[in-house]
């Protein structure tokens, strides 16, 4: 079985990492550069960096801040928030991003996905879905940090975006995010059922068992924020716990004695 990726997500507002709780309340967590470095050192497999207000105010994210955050970490970084043009993607890549996460602009103009995939390759384009459960049990895709309706069914939207050429899908549950009550399993299974590309689940992680549950539903990678930010469980502990359940994860190789004689 392949390795499941463990990915801390940094929600950025201004110069801070914040933690949104179901998009309403915000708490300041800390300094993005310090947190990113800590997660890299602790064995995170990737990082997700989301500016949570750039899209709402139609601003660009702060590329200088991004550059400083990515300057001394050597794992893939996915960046989202206010990405609206190919130029924005290029700026993000030049500031240390390896992939971009697109939500609002893709919903507004789905062909943006194909344009971006053609220019930068599918591997670079991550569809970011913020899904909220509807009274009839279906899920709707939201924009602008879970504030605005799109009128699109989240599961149908995932299918369409795969056809348009996204390389991965990051699915966040607006209802579960910040609750630490577990991932939205029906949401993740509904998309995992057909997705031929990697699926990253976000929203609701409270303990290692929650992660194992959503992996079983078909997630290829796990994103979490609160549990890591507040040191409730370390990345190493999560990996150990998953590995005991028979789930493969990357173990950072501690034995590096490189002194070749050429």
């Amino acid at each position: 079985m392949k390795n499941i990726r463990i990915i801390p997500t940094l929600h950025i507002k201004g110069h801070n990492v914040v933690k949104p709780i179901q998009t309403e309340a915000l708490r300041v967590v800390g300094n993005p550069k310090e947190l990113a470095l800590r997660y890299y050192e602790e064995g995170a497999d990737e990082l997700i960096y989301l500016d949570i207000v750039a899209s709402l105010y139609r601003r660009n994210l702060d590329f200088e801040l991004l550059k400083s955050v990515t300057s001394n970490i050597f794992i893939p970084v996915t960046v989202g928030g206010g990405i609206r043009t190919l130029h924005d993607i290029n700026d993000a890549l030049r500031s240390g991003a390896d992939k971009v996460a697109i939500n609002t602009e893709a919903l507004r103009r789905p062909e943006f996905i194909s344009e971006a995939a053609r220019e930068f390759g599918s591997q670079c384009i991550v569809l970011y879905i913020e899904a909220k459960k509807q009274p009839d049990g279906s899920f709707e895709a939201y924009t602008d940090g879970g504030r605005e309706h799109s009128g699109r069914d989240a599961v149908e939207w995932a299918k369409r975006a795969i056809d348009l050429g996204v390389g991965e899908i990051l699915v966040s549950s607006v209802d579960q995010d910040g609750t630490r009550k577990g991932y939205d399993l029906p949401l993740i299974s509904a998309i995992a059922r057909f997705a031929p590309i990697p699926l990253i689940a976000h929203g609701g992680a409270g303990n290692a068992s929650h992660l194992a549950e959503v992996i079983e539903k078909g997630a290829d990678a796990i994103s979490a924020s609160s549990i890591f930010h507040y040191n409730e469980i370390s990345i190493a502990e999560v990996k150990k716990s998953l590995s005991e359940k028979g789930i493969n994860v990357r173990a950072e190789n501690s034995k590096l004695s490189n002194s070749p004689n050429f």
Binding site: N3, R5, D45, Q123, G167, P198, D220, L256, P260
Partner: peptide, 29 residues
């Protein structure tokens, strides 16, 4: 598994090949 392959995977020398005196020296899988 899904294609593309996205993520971390082990790299090891083919049988009979040594990584000594190469840029892979000191790395074990």
């Amino acid at each position: 598994e899904k294609i593309p392959e996205v993520g971390w995977n082990k790299v090891y020398p083919p049988e009979g090949v040594s990584w000594e005196k190469s840029i892979f020296a000191g790395l074990e899988s």
